[in-house]
């Protein structure tokens, strides 16, 4: 029963992952990513991480995927039917991916005692997780929050339109220096 559930979820995740990287329509790709994330959330639940599963669904699927769709909308030309996907370097990319997968899989398969039951795993509930986060690892937690803050501010700075008039002049400070030689061409 468990294995069947795992198989279905894993199959869903893998299939949709392939769809993400292969679908020609980017909007479809984003939606397929949502499917993958939901399938993974199911796996989390099966692995006893129910809180994480809900976080995944709420934050990832609800937040990130929505954000992606917004991003897609904003980076789309007027009159375009949709961003065209033109893959390049497919062969070397596939080669690298296959080699890496082969090596990793070989490592997993050839490692003895991976599934030897060590101790009966205690279920980690939301309460235990919360304690671990804000008591044992509070420093890392706060650092992550700082990071998020910096990322938000940085994203705003990068994406801000400095000069409402021209598109090209909207380069942020970090890109200004490279914009100069461009203008000189």
């Amino acid at each position: 029963m468990e294995s069947l559930g795992f198989g279905i979820l894993a199959g869903c995740a893998l299939m949709s992952a392939f769809a993400v990287v292969r679908s020609a329509n980017l909007v479809h790709a984003v939606l397929w990513l949502g499917v993958t994330l939901v399938a993974t959330a199911g796996l989390y639940a099966m692995l006893g991480a129910s809180f994480l599963a809900s976080v995944q669904v709420l934050l990832y699927v609800g937040g990130v995927v929505t954000l992606m769709i917004f991003g897609l909308m904003m980076t789309r030309r007027h009159g375009d039917s949709g961003p065209q996907i033109e893959d390049v370097r497919s062969a070397p990319a596939a080669l690298a991916a296959i080699i890496l997968f082969g090596a990793t899989a070989w490592a997993v398969v050839s490692t003895d005692g991976l599934d030897a039951p060590v101790t009966p795993p205690p279920a980690v509930g939301p309460a235990a997780l919360g304690r671990a986060l804000v008591r044992d690892h509070v420093l890392a937690f706060e650092t992550i929050s700082m990071l998020l803050l910096v990322a938000i501010v940085g994203a705003i700075v990068i994406a801000r339109r400095k000069d409402p008039g021209g598109a090209a002049a909207a380069a942020p400070a970090s890109a200004a220096s490279v914009a100069v030689p461009k203008a000189a061409e």
Partner: peptide
């Protein structure tokens, strides 16, 4: 950038093979 990433990833794959 994609070319650089490709090179880095081929390197990672190579390292993984070597480690295995």
């Amino acid at each position: 950038a994609p070319d650089y990433v490709l090179a880095a990833m081929l390197g990672v794959a190579g390292l993984a093979v070597w480690a295995v």
